[in-house]
């Protein structure tokens, strides 16, 4: 598998009134063609900001201050805003967290689908009538692909006439309209109920297999990752703390934070026993000292942990940001 997206040492900062907030601090990641990477972490761990930075969507007061982003051999950070617009939607597409508000309420579904095609698809015929027919056909095809019944008549409807699950599907259809090489699905299931969640995730996996597209699945649900992702990356306080093949990381977590996350998930086998929460709070991202960010909550913490911790090898294809890895083998 060849590398599609390679991010090295990415740093994104927001200047707030009280000081500089480093929302993403030295994140490096790789996604290969056709691969599904799960990105896990609690709210505020920098998952979404990392991918907004990759897409060049961070707006003032936020700024990407450091790092390189290479997509398909092209340097995204070196691109002009116009070039970047050509990449967004065509090569990398993103679905938003909240499907209920991510569609424009004033335009029909058909109009919104057609706009992406018109903006990015050069293969459309140039003749006016032929173009209209081609666009319509593609819209119907995309809605059919995401499993919307009678797509032909539904193209003329407005977002408020669809249910939450339908809207999530439509958003995915819009994101997929130009057959992107990478789909960033930012918590695609948070606004949906459980049965619809499963359907939507199944849909994404299915389309990924059919179109050979890579997916970055941002979520805080390790169960979702276990089921759908090839590799997983765990983020904590703006840093990657552990990454590796999904089965290895979930079956045998090495970083104390990943272990804590897994221990806090209810399991049928542990019925009747209390859950084990991770004690303490996520640290304030403002003015963090160069030391392990998890040490205040870590059961393994020692005074020697109060130094800057690099990502260390933790077995084949695995890395973790912890000095006490030998204790978690």
């Amino acid at each position: 598998m060849t590398v599609l997206l390679e991010v090295t040492n990415l740093r994104t900062e927001f200047s707030a009134r009280a000081g500089l907030v480093r929302a993403v601090d030295g994140v490096s990641l790789q996604i290969s063609r056709g691969e599904c990477l799960g990105v896990v972490g609690e709210s505020g761990s920098g998952k979404s900001v990392t991918f907004s930075s990759i897409m060049g969507l961070v707006r003032p007061p936020g700024r990407v201050t450091q790092g390189t982003i290479f997509f398909d051999g092209r340097d995204l950070r070196g691109m002009s805003p116009e070039e970047m617009r050509g990449v967004r939607g065509r090569d990398i597409a993103m679905t938003m967290q909240d499907a209920l508000t991510a569609l424009n309420p004033a335009l029909t579904i058909g109009e919104q689908l057609a706009e992406v095609l018109v903006a990015h698809d050069e293969t459309l015929p140039t003749g006016r009538a032929a173009r209209r027919v081609a666009i319509k056909d593609r819209c119907v095809e995309m809605l059919g692909l995401v499993g919307i019944p009678s797509p032909d008549s539904r193209l003329r409807q407005y977002p408020h006439e669809f249910s939450g699950g339908m809207r999530q599907r439509i958003m995915i259809a819009i994101a997929l309209a130009c057959r992107p090489k990478l789909l960033i699905a930012d918590e695609p299931t948070t606004a949906l109920d459980v049965t619809i969640q499963a359907q939507v995730l199944e849909l994404i996996s299915d389309i990924r297999a059919r179109m050979g597209m890579a997916v970055a699945l941002i979520t805080h649900d390790l169960g979702v990752v276990a089921e759908h992702c090839d590799r997983v990356m765990v983020m904590y306080a703006g840093q990657v703390v552990e990454e590796g093949p999904t089965e290895d990381v979930i079956g045998h977590p090495r970083h104390p934070y990943t272990r804590g996350l897994l221990a806090s998930i209810p399991r049928p086998a542990m019925r009747g026993q209390p859950l084990t929460p991770i004690k303490g709070q996520v640290p304030n991202l403002m003015g963090l000292a160069p030391q392990c960010r998890f040490h205040s909550r870590c059961p393994l913490a020692e005074p020697s942990c109060l130094v800057e911790v690099p990502m260390l090898s933790a077995g084949p294809g695995r890395r973790a940001r912890c000095l006490r890895l030998e204790e978690t083998v």
């Binding site: 050509g86 991510a102 706009e115 903006a119």
Partner: peptide, 20 residues
């Protein structure tokens, strides 16, 4: 609003975002 951000994520330019 989220749909404006979504439009930006799909490569929409300023003109498109303002008018559409």
């Amino acid at each position: 609003l989220e749909y404006v951000e979504a439009a930006r994520a799909l490569g929409a330019g300023s003109g498109h975002i303002m008018w559409r």
